[in-house]
Design a protein around this nucleic acid. Structure first.
Lengths: 181, 181
DNA sequence: GGATGAATACTGCCGTTGGCAGTAAGTAGA
DNA sequence: TCTACTTACTGCCAACGGCAGTATTCATCC
């Protein structure tokens, strides 16, 4: 079982879902700190069933079949055990920072554009998070936990904005990527 | 060509490296924002050579062979072009946050332990970054760019520490993961 | 001088993941 | 009825992670 498996098990602990709903829900919440492609979310629940952590049942909308997954008692126990284990350190994948780090291999305009895009992206994500906080939440009984997660994300986006603003100001004083005037 | 390929091309733009040195250097710098396993770093330069962006030459230490990679003019041009392209949004993989997000499926002690470990980890990484800043740097002419990257990393670790401290205080007021007292 | 352990310099293997494309049925509105 | 969007998936392949294994060189201790 991978972290992705336990992450989906965590969602199944809240209520039964179809894979499609699971994918939507992952995109809204989990993907902020555990991003996985939709493709994976169609394979993983099958493995949960194979491990005895979930059951699958087929439903029909006319001719179209859909699979609804539900957690088992064994799944809840496995989740509880997993939650007590130590975690791998966080990993940040930031293509824009690769461009910043090797900026002296290109034009100073490229660096300025990269920094501006970083700030814009962070502002957009922060706005999205704030919209989510304002909107209704499907599990009001877990709002206190959701708020913990949301807060870290907001603060990280804010950190990114602050840094990009500072970095842009630094770079504004450079003639070229070779360095300060 | 992948981002990983351009990242290594960026390092080759600084000086020629053996794969082993490349791996060390990636671990010290790049891996903060573009983490890749050592294994990958032995395959990727071969692809750079195939693309005409680098050359490989074999050297010997006694019987032991090693491969030294060097960037070509074509490689420098490719890097310059790539640096002007827009970047993918950042992705954060944080297993500990998955545990926080599903904390209501486990004991409140598990949550407290996860939060404490997050703070400890962030403090350790921050100390490492500060040690790096104090130590000597192999490319003094690019210290101004290196500082930009280092600063973001430091601020993100600090954000993590601040958040974990706040979250621990919140959770201290809970009897169980079910919520505030 | 010989043993030992760390550093150097890789390769093989396999399971996980990402990303794109493709298929097909249901649904809301013009 | 046509169209576009949503629902509900599957196939394929390249990228990637993680572990294990091989072989040589180098520094240190006894």
């Amino acid at each position: 079982m991978t972290t992705t498996g336990y992450a989906l098990l965590g969602l199944l602990a809240l209520r039964p879902w179809t894979t499609y709903e699971l994918a939507q829900q992952v995109r809204r919440s989990l993907s902020w700190f555990w991003p996985r492609t939709e493709r994976k979310l169609y394979d993983e629940p099958k493995r949960l069933v194979a491990a005895g952590y979930a059951t699958a049942r087929e439903e029909f909308t006319g001719k179209r079949k859909r699979t609804v997954y539900e957690i088992t008692d064994s799944g809840r126990m496995a989740l509880r055990d997993w939650l007590a284990l130590p975690s791998a350190p966080p990993a940040m994948e930031n293509e824009a920072m690769v461009r910043v780090f090797f900026a002296d291999g290109g034009d100073v305009e490229s660096l300025r554009a990269t920094l501006a895009a970083m700030a814009d992206g962070a502002r957009a994500r922060l706005a999205e998070l704030e919209a989510m906080e304002g909107g209704e939440y499907p599990f009001p009984e877990r709002r206190h936990i959701s708020r913990l997660a949301m807060r870290l994300q907001q603060q990280q986006e804010q950190t990114m904005i602050d840094w990009a603003t500072w970095a842009s100001a630094e770079v504004a004083r450079w003639d070229a990527t070779a360095g300060p005037r």
